[in-house]
Design a protein around this nucleic acid. Structure first.
Lengths: 140, 140
DNA sequence: AGTCTTACTGAGAATAGTTATCAATAGACT
DNA sequence: AGTCTATTGATAACTATTCTCAGTAAGACT
């Protein structure tokens, strides 16, 4: 129930594996799971250990190089966000997984305010909205 | 990657276990995981198998007796529908983990609006705010 | 109340996704 | 080139969940 966060400031080395994983992410707008990325690397004849893929993605997500969300099926899926400008959120269909990106200036302001009121600094937040999209609702 | 849904119309029996689980859910506004509910039942000296807790919650969710969402940590968490006016969020210190509960009517309305605009239904969301609390900031 | 049908239960095995371990490797700095 | 240490890979361990299957108990029907 608790979140472990490593606050140690460590230098990130640019390794072949890290570059390869980043290339995969930059080749698509879709969310990809660690397992998927591992398979895609295999197809490109690049041997990168599964654990390395997990570790690298996790680190990238912490350093905010990429977005990470939890799919309805329980996997963590990752995506390189093109639009780095402005923090944004996701509207995700529980059924088919289709994802819509939405800006949230309202939320930014609100979270900032709440945090300040409670004496918190260096604020960040995560917000995802889940629902059933039009298509899936029609099918059901 | 696909979701199996059993469409067979089966009669649901009212067992001691099912009643016990429902009571736990009715005793709170919070989302609870299967594991948590299992522990709470143990504390009440009610011996209900873990598998039964999982099965029952899953079934209740399908029959729409309760809400089910996936937490950021990967667990499926459940809540008895109806009392939406209990939903709130957490302000968490990255350093010491202290957690402050905050209401968010602003957020509720905003997420509802965004979802509707995009044709989504059965909306739920997750939001956590992270920062460094007063105490930890002073120490650093 | 007795009996029958079958949904439900519990304990543990099996599975999926992810994280931890640890010796070996390889960036990057002098 | 040599040193330091972040990173890697193979695999074990872990967590959350589902499956299996023999035994149990709702609930319907005498």
């Amino acid at each position: 129930m608790s979140v472990k966060v490593d606050l140690t400031m460590v230098k990130t080395r640019s390794t072949q594996q890290r570059v390869a994983i980043l290339q995969i992410l930059e080749g698509t707008d879709e969310f990809r799971s660690a397992q998927e990325i591992h398979k895609l690397l295999e197809q490109k004849k690049l041997k990168v250990g599964l654990a390395t893929v997990y570790r690298t993605l996790q680190k990238m997500a912490v350093q905010e190089d990429i977005d990470a969300i939890r799919s309805a099926h329980g996997e963590i899926i990752y995506r390189k966000c093109g639009q780095k400008e402005g923090h944004h959120h996701h509207l995700i269909c529980r059924q088919c997984g289709i994802t819509i990106t939405v800006d949230g200036p309202t939320i930014e302001n609100w979270t900032e305010k709440i945090a300040k009121e409670n004496g918190f600094r260096e604020v960040s937040h995560t917000l995802d909205i889940f629902g059933i999209c039009k298509n899936c609702y029609r099918k059901a």
